[in-house]
Design a protein around this nucleic acid. Structure first.
Lengths: 192, 192
DNA sequence: TTGATAGGCTAATTATATTAGCCATTATAG
DNA sequence: CTATAATGGCTAATATAATTAGCCTATCAA
């Protein structure tokens, strides 16, 4: 019988399955079963098989994240905007652990597709930084630091890698304040 | 014929294979071939199979990193020590991309083993922070920020995720300065 | 020197990915 | 309205990797 699936529905099912069980446990077999079809049928939607599905998950994740942080920044500027973006990033990861794995690890050593995928998210951060009167290079450094911290912190947090009971919210706020200070310092000084 | 392998040799071979081809491409089959044996023989060393091998890789990686950053901090204190540790962390990742993958992603959702594995590395950072006269909680926050940034930055850098041509060294130095400022600010203020 | 253990092997099993080729339903051009 | 193409499903067959079972020999210690 014809279920009538399309790529979008399959990717969303795969994403939520990844969030539940980890992206490594999203097999074509179990995904197909979940969707009420047999695994070979998935090749009608993803001729590239599991690899293509993982790539689509990665792309879908970055698109979703971009959309979340874009929404979060609406009506905000400067520090407020950055803070909202960072909160939105962190929330996104906490709600989409499995998808976040896919975002980071698909195609790790072929950066082209990754660069394209992350472009939107990077652009949003870059735009918000326009308000600070920084040089292009200073903006690049600032975005890199934000991305690096967010990715690492959220990855560690999402798999329970911060064992100490001290509140993670406090750490996150401290980090944001620290990074915002660093960005502010760029404005005056000759540094970097 | 008896090749006479032991766990250590196998793990080291697996680690260097991971660095060359990515940890996902370390299969028992190809690892065994590389070592001059057949894949079922690996079960004599790792009864848990591929999963256990990956776990051992993860543990080996964290042990190695701990040893690197410990060596790097010798004879240094405060900011100098932290800077050396961060440089050593970054160098380690750039030389062990595949191992670093294993360190992050093995057993992602069962934090216990991860917590133990990272304990040494965390301890080194924690000890260096003793010199700053911070509260326990402030030290915890500081270590978390360092870990988060280092893991994220190095992961992104290691797979070419920072596309802009601006020098990554400059970003890294800017980030360290920023974080060190943040830690210094903790000493005086009432913040966090 | 003999017996246990370590460390290899082959053969067989299981699981998933993938390919090939068939078929029904849907949608659309005429 | 109907012929036909495209869509989306299926079964059967193949390939590869992991894993298990059971066998065999070299080494090493009692």
């Amino acid at each position: 019988m014809k279920v009538g699936l399309d790529k979008k529905a399959i990717i969303e099912a795969a994403a939520s399955m990844a969030d539940e069980k980890g992206v490594a446990n999203v097999t074509l077999k179990v995904l197909a079963t979940e969707l009420g079809i047999k695994s070979p049928s998935l090749y009608k939607h993803f001729s590239g098989g599991l690899d293509e599905l993982n790539k689509e998950l990665m792309l879908y994740g970055w698109r979703s994240l971009e959309s979340e942080i874009t929404r979060a920044a609406i009506g905000k500027a400067k520090d407020d905007a950055i803070i909202e973006i960072c909160y939105a990033y962190r929330s996104f990861v906490s709600e989409h652990k499995g998808l976040f794995e896919a975002m980071q690890w698909y195609n790790m050593y072929q950066s082209e597709e990754h660069l394209q995928a992350t472009h939107g998210t990077v652009s949003v951060m870059f735009q918000v930084l326009e308000a600070y009167g920084l040089t292009e290079e200073q903006k690049v450094h600032s975005v890199r630091v934000l991305r690096g911290f967010l990715q690492g912190f959220c990855a560690i947090e999402s798999h329970g890698g911060y064992g100490n009971p001290a509140p993670l919210n406090d750490t996150f706020d401290f980090a944001l304040k620290t990074i915002l200070n660093g960005i502010r310092d760029l404005q005056g000084g000759t540094e970097q």
